[in-house]
Design a protein around this nucleic acid. Structure first.
Lengths: 173, 173
DNA sequence: CTGAACTTTCAGTTATTACTGAAAGTATCG
DNA sequence: CGATACTTTCAGTAATAACTGAAAGTTCAG
């Protein structure tokens, strides 16, 4: 049996690694997901150099992905008193992380998809023929569905955990 | 202004293309997403050769991605009477498509993630020290959250649109 | 059986995406 | 200022994922 210190380090490493795997299955770069996992499991903010060393990645890679995490709003730069370099700290509240991801993916991917669906629906609205009408009906149906999803995402992203989770629990399960 | 026939073909092409883009942002291969878009916008089932031609892809690529779509349950093989070759037909009900995707991603990605989180929580449950306790608390918190998400996904995947959508509409918006 | 019609596989190639590291840029301090 | 400490950029390279096409496999009619 391994020592307690290793048990923690091992578990953390497994978490960081698997978070990376999961992220890449959902279209998030492995490194970005791993950096996120590293930061949320760190008690203290980390510098670029510390992150580089922990994941054995280059400065450029660390810099790019840390800034990307900041642009998602999942991580913020913090200043250590008397220090010149930037430190990074992740939001650790699971509900807030979830809301942020929902908000960003909605903005980055769902809204553009909605625009495409609307354009496809509009451009075929007045066409005749069963093929055109069927296509148009499908675009409208998918559009309405995605619109509903978008509304739910907006609402979730803006909500308090204490208000939504109990309601969801009541609705499902 | 272009002819009506082109307007439909153009809109369909835009939809197929953009569905591919959206898919790849969410970790689904572009070709698979495009094949899916092609099939749901087809009034008739398509053969492998027809799909190959429509997307200008190789036989191997078409075969692999069509089978993958079948394994997701989004597409089924159908036999045309008196025909030897396989034809493929997509489920067109938007709610059913959504449920299928939810069910499959839960099974393929969320369940494994849950296993990792539980393992990380268990392995650190009895460790002492503030770092270990904080890590363990985070694993438990994320685990509970993902478990809730998994339950919601199970429930959604098994539900009738007419029962869930109105309830969701009432809850959000 | 045999061959035609079709499907599947997979080694090799191509396309895409991610990463490196050195150079250029910026801010701060004495 | 000029030196130092740090951050950002990006051309080149590496890693990964996806695709091709020909060969092997399967099915079935005659």
């Amino acid at each position: 049996m391994s020592s307690p210190a290793h048990a923690l380090a091992d578990a953390r490493l497994e978490f960081v690694t698997q978070w990376g795997v999961l992220g890449s299955a959902w279209g998030i770069s492995r490194t970005m997901a791993m950096l996120h996992a590293l930061l949320i499991t760190s008690q203290v903010p980390l510098s670029t150099d510390e992150a580089m060393e922990a994941l054995t990645i280059s400065r450029g890679n660390a810099n790019t992905n840390l800034r990307e995490l900041v642009s998602w709003g999942l991580v913020r730069k913090v200043v250590q008193p008397g220090e010149r370099r930037d430190y990074f700290e992740a939001e650790k509240d699971v509900w807030k992380i979830f809301c942020t991801v929902v908000r960003e993916r909605k903005r980055r991917e769902v809204d553009p998809a909605l625009a495409v669906l609307r354009s496809c629906a509009e451009r075929t609205a007045s066409l005749r023929g069963s093929e055109a009408r069927e296509f148009n009906g499908l675009m409208v149906a998918i559009g309405e569905f995605v619109e509903l999803a978008a509304r739910v995402m907006d609402r979730v992203a803006a909500s308090e955990r204490s208000k939504i989770v109990p309601a969801v629990l009541k609705l499902f399960k």
